[in-house]
């Protein structure tokens, strides 16, 4: 049965409630900024926000989030220039916290979710919260620095 949900502020329709949220976002809506890394909830590449909280989209269905507001990396900011980025995105640019970049949207969404909850998260809390994310390129030192920068600079939105 068709089901509707809110994605990045727009109402969208899915064929049925059992549709995997990650597949729905990527293949049905073409929002490919949310990545597939493992499909098992272990890498964080697929992280999106649901009502401001970080969630692994690969582990859930459209039906499970239908009542909420889903935000993907595409919906975080206009992103036309560095100036209009979300503070967390901007911090990643400034710290050059990326190599291949494949994990980065997931890290950004995870960090935004954390800072929504704890705008002044400490360095230790940031590492703890992001421990569920993987970056095989090993960009962790810069990712930590970026999120710390955003936290002290008021990264929450």
């Amino acid at each position: 049965m068709a089901i509707t949900l809110n994605v990045n502020g727009a109402r969208r329709e899915a064929a049925h409630g059992e549709r995997n949220l990650l597949s729905f976002l990527r293949f049905d809506l073409g929002l490919t900024g949310t990545k597939y890394g493992c499909g098992e909830g272990l890498c964080g590449a697929c992280t999106v926000l649901v009502d401001g909280q970080a969630l692994r989209s690969c582990m859930t269905t459209v039906g499970a989030v239908a009542g909420g507001e889903v935000t993907t990396i595409e919906g975080l900011s206009p992103g036309t220039s560095v100036e209009d980025l979300h503070p967390v995105q901007r911090a990643f640019v400034e710290e050059q916290a990326m190599q291949c970049g494949y994990c980065i949207p997931g890290f950004i969404m995870g960090a935004v979710g954390l800072l929504n909850r704890r705008p002044d998260a400490s360095a230790g809390e940031i590492r703890e919260a992001l421990a569920e994310h993987m970056c095989r390129c090993g960009t962790y030192q810069r990712i930590a620095a970026a999120v710390e920068r955003a936290a002290s600079g008021g990264g929450a939105s």
Binding site: I73, V82, F92
Partner: peptide
């Protein structure tokens, strides 16, 4: 200051 492809990487456009 930044990578030439930074914007695409943090916005999911890459």
């Amino acid at each position: 200051r930044q990578r030439v492809d930074a914007l695409d990487r943090v916005t999911g456009r890459a």
